[in-house]
């Protein structure tokens, strides 16, 4: 027969209450995380035809705010990619530096709704690099947590996935940011309620333990 050692009722209650108090005092839980905020892709805009090589485009998307797409693009606040610069490196290693200005949520398009960065379809590129600054640094995510970027700088490099040159409609990358996700601190009233809830939970656990003992005794 197992010797069941019973602890006093107040022991578990005090332990649970202490844990809850610690959570309330600490206020939040923080952890490092990388989130996606956009995309950079090399796409066909107009297919080649006749003797014309067609038109390709480097599409940049800021997938935050209204253009957030949870769960993989979870930023509900509007981020701005400020002072964005796209550097295209041709296969002869020459470069074309394009000042894109600030990029708001959505796609980088001109006033007519067409891609801003268009290139002839017969150009050959080794890479494309997007640099910009993030603003603001702290944003809310769809799960209610707050994300704070480690740095205000974005530096995304699009490299060939196959071979040494970018392949249209194949090569793309996400624009991601590393930072810290923080659980929001409850308000004082909410904290009291949470604390009371934990106390009740602890009491309940203790009570169920007592009932279990009574039930066993009946058996």
């Amino acid at each position: 027969m197992r010797n069941i050692k019973r602890r006093p009722l107040y022991y578990s209650t005090i332990r649970a209450t202490g844990f809850c108090a610690m959570v309330c005092v600490l206020g939040s839980i923080a952890q490092a995380e990388t989130i996606n905020v956009g995309g950079l892709s090399y796409d066909t805009f107009i297919t080649a035809g006749g003797s014309s090589p067609g038109v390709f485009a480097f599409n940049i998307a800021n997938l935050t705010g209204d253009y957030g797409l949870p769960p993989y693009f979870p930023v509900t606040d509007s981020l701005t990619f400020g002072s964005a610069i796209l550097t295209l490196t041709f296969n002869d290693l020459s470069q074309d530096v394009i000042d894109l200005g600030d990029i708001a949520p959505g796609f980088l398009l001109d006033g007519n709704g067409n891609p801003i960065v268009q290139v002839p379809g017969d150009e050959v590129f080794d890479s494309a690099e997007l640099t910009a600054t993030l603003s603001p640094l702290s944003v809310m995510l769809t799960d209610g947590t707050e994300f704070t970027a480690d740095s205000s700088s974005i530096d995304i490099l699009l490299l060939p996935s196959v071979g040494s040159n970018l392949t249209v409609d194949v090569d793309s990358t996400t624009i991601d940011v590393t930072g810290t996700v923080t659980v929001a601190t409850p308000e004082p009233a909410s904290g009291v309620l949470v604390l009371a809830g934990f106390c009740g939970l602890a009491w309940g656990v203790q009570l169920s333990g007592s009932l279990r003992i009574v039930f066993r005794k009946r058996i």
Partner: peptide
Amino acid sequence: VTLLPSTSPTAAEPGVTNLSVTGS
């Protein structure tokens, strides 16, 4: 499937321009 509010690009020439719609 949830789509983004607009296509990319947003302007289309029938039979000519390639568009895409992104969703989760």
